[in-house]
Structures are given as C-alpha cells and as structure tokens.
Simulated scan of single mutants.
Amino acid sequence: MTGLREERTRQTQELILAAAEELFAERGFQSTSLVDVAERSGVSRGSIPWHFGDKQGLLIAVVEKLHADFRRAMDVPIPAGPDGLGQIVRLASTSIRTGTTRLFLTLLQEAGRPGSPVHAPFAAIHQDMRDYFRAWAEQPEVAASLPDGVGPDDIAAIFVGAIIGMNQQYVINPVLDLRHGYEALARIVLER
C-alpha cells in the first residue's frame, strides 16, 4: 500500500509542478495563484500546500526542477571539434522547443527581485551553465583557437549571456533564426 501511495503522491506533485510551470511561464509568479494552479492541474487547492508548503515552496520546487532539467541537458560534454558547435546549437535551441525558455526568462525576473527565494538557485543555474561552457573552452583544441586575451571564463560568460539574450529575443519575436545566431556566435569567438 505504501508503494501505491508514494506513486500517487509523485503523480500529484508532477501534475502540480507542470501546471505551475505553465502558469508561471504564461503569467509570472506574482500573477499566479494557488487556485489557478489547482484549476490547471486538476488537483484540489488544499493539497498544494500539503505537497509544497506554500506558493513560495512551489516556486522553489519549479526552479529546482528547471535546474535539474538543465543539468541533465549538460550531462554530455561539448566535443572540441565541429561536433561541438552542433551540440551547442542543439542544447541552446532545445529549451525553445520545450517551452523552458519562457519559464526561465519569466522566473529570471523573479530571481532579480530583492530577497527573492530563487535568487540563489538561479545563481547556481548560471554557474552550472558557465562551468559547462568553460570546460568546453578549456579543451586544448578550443583554447588554441581563442583570440588573444580571451580565456575560458570569458567564453563561458559570453556564451551564457548570448544564449539567454538570443532566447529572450526569440520569445519576444520568434522570427529570429536562433540556429544561425548560435552558429554565428561560435564563428565569431572561434575564428580569427
């Protein structure tokens, strides 16, 4: 019986998280109520605090899931050769196809608020992203192609900033060709 109860709990939490992700991406955290989440998820409003404590606990759970999703996407190191560019493009464009970008950008605004409970988790997401690109840029083949005075830390910050910025532009105006933008970024950085 315990296994069945645990499975139902997990399924209920997934329904609540999925609804919260959609609503936070559509409306933002501040404009979403637990009633909205309950209606979207089909779960009673009273069970949301039981699973997540309060709305802030739900927000933290959504950001933790977002961070875990990013970590899974970054499990495969970027190869130094031409395949690396393709992997960067796939990684950066996956979030647009899955809707993660809108959620990320909406919650990024929340993370910037003074005293935000998701400031530290977002700082960790950014650090993981920079670490991922730094590891790529530290490979001898890539490092040798970097312009003078530009190091792996610079590349990591440039790629994370550019990817977030290009994705933001795409969310606002989806005519932007992200694939071309990512490829151009890599060529600018890696070709002299």
Rank of each mutant, 00 (worst) to 15 (best):
V76H: 12
Q13F: 04
E14R: 14
L85Q: 06
P174C: 12
F122S: 00
F52V: 08
L146A: 12
R27W: 03
G151I: 08
V189W: 14
R179G: 08
S116H: 04
A186G: 01
T32Q: 06
G53S: 01
V63E: 12
S116T: 03
L17P: 00
R179W: 02
R134I: 08
V189E: 13
A156E: 07
D69F: 05
P49D: 04
V118N: 01
S95L: 11
P114E: 12
R192N: 12
L190Q: 10
F52P: 05
R130T: 10
R40E: 15
Q56W: 10
A137C: 00
L85H: 02
T94M: 04
M129Y: 01
Y170Q: 03
D154N: 15
A156S: 13
A186L: 09
D69C: 04
G84L: 02
M74W: 08
E39G: 08
S44G: 14
R27Y: 01
S31M: 14
E14Q: 15
E141W: 03
R72V: 08
L15D: 09
R134Q: 10
F122W: 01
Q139R: 12
T2L: 13
E110L: 05
A19E: 00
I16A: 04
Q30P: 06
D131F: 00
V89F: 01
G149V: 15
A120V: 13
A120K: 13
G28S: 02
E14K: 15
T106G: 05
D153M: 03
T100A: 06
K55I: 07
H51S: 07
S47P: 10
